[in-house]
Computed example of a mutant assay.
Amino acid sequence: MVRSGVLVRLRGGAFVDARTWSRLDEIGRYGLRCRAVLGQAKAPVVLSHVSGLPEWDAPTWGLPLDDVHVTRTDGIRGRRAVGVQQHVGTVRPEDLTTVNGVPVMTPARLALESVTMGNSEAALAVLNDLTHRGLVTGPELRDQYVAMQTWPGIAAAEVLLRLLDPRIESVGESRTFWAIYQQRLPRPVAQYEVKDSSGRVLARLDFAWPELRVWLEFDGRSKYEKYRRPGESIADAVVREKAREDLVRRVTGWRCIRITWADLQDPVRLATIIHRALYPQAA
């Protein structure tokens, strides 16, 4: 059935319908591999680290998806298998839960585990996402950090918890915020509300520097798809977004910076663009 294209082999002894596989993106396929490892485990394990994130619909951008990560709950060290990293460490009862019928670490534990994987930018996106959606709170993350503060690689969490901002809504916004921090630019206000004289909210801005009269919008394709109205094309959404920008400019008199994913590939150049907008007199 694999040779004929009916099934796709996830790993030895685990298969999925080829039509289902074809409809999945990279994260969905990784999630199935993770479930296959769980289904074949001979020891008590739960999905952990990056492997638990798909069950919570959390972002995995920038985190390695080569291996499946599980943690044993019996405290016994096991063998490493091909494509599987089996972790052993202190597991508290409050670290464990079940989502979608799958045993997995809690959002607080997964968020801090993502920090130990070595990519602080990616970990910040995880922390912001989980807090933005109300799956975990800042105090809960700090309590988790205290419980894990002797772990290798966890030290970066101290900085990330200071940068944490539940108002940040997407990976693109988290990466933008990280670039601003890394390039030592002034910290902006996330999701800044522009109001009229009666207090009615006219617009919410991705980031703003009110005292410098500048705001920044991150333009990812998903932004227009997510907020597209019924019957509206992406082109219509773009036109509506331009009208929104003109309204904000008329009401506030501020300058607007628009960036895309491509701009995030060169943080130094991006910092120059933002700096010139913030301090035009110095350009």
Rank of each mutant, 00 (worst) to 15 (best):
A111F: 08
P107L: 12
A18T: 08
V37H: 04
A111H: 07
V102A: 10
R79M: 01
A81F: 03
R72H: 06
G52F: 05
L32I: 11
D74T: 00
S48E: 02
T20E: 15
G28N: 11
G52K: 02
A36C: 13
D67H: 04
T73F: 01
N100P: 01
V37T: 09
L24M: 14
G31P: 08
D25E: 12
V37R: 02
R109C: 03
L65W: 02
H49I: 02
V104N: 08
P54T: 03
M105F: 06
E55R: 00
D25T: 09
V16N: 11
E55M: 13
V104L: 02
P64C: 02
R80I: 09
G52V: 05
R92D: 12
T106Y: 06
W56S: 09
P59R: 02
R80L: 06
H87C: 02
G39H: 12
R109N: 07
Q40A: 15
V68Y: 04
A108Q: 11
V82C: 06
G78M: 03
V70W: 00
N100Q: 10
W21I: 06
V37E: 14
S48W: 00
P44A: 02
T60M: 12
V102H: 10
R109V: 07
N100C: 08
A81K: 05
Y30N: 09
G89Q: 06
G78Y: 07
V99F: 06
L96D: 13
E94A: 14
V68W: 01
P44Y: 07
T73K: 00
V102W: 06
V99M: 12
V99W: 11
T71C: 03
I27Y: 10
P93L: 04
G62L: 04
I76D: 06
W61G: 05
V102M: 11
D17T: 14
T20N: 10
G39V: 11
D95I: 01
E26D: 15
T71H: 01
D25M: 11
L65M: 09
A18I: 13
G39R: 12
D74A: 01
T97E: 14
D95W: 13
H87G: 00
G31Y: 04
V102C: 09
V45H: 04
L47N: 05
V104E: 06
L112M: 13
G78Q: 03
G39T: 14
G75I: 02
L110R: 01
V82M: 09
D57L: 10
R92W: 14
A108D: 10
L53Y: 06
T98G: 07
L47D: 07
S48T: 09
T90V: 11
G101I: 12
H49A: 03
R72Y: 00
T97Q: 10
W21M: 13
P44I: 00
D17V: 08
L112V: 05
L65E: 02
A43G: 03
E113R: 00
E26H: 14
V99T: 07
G83C: 01
A41K: 09
S22F: 13
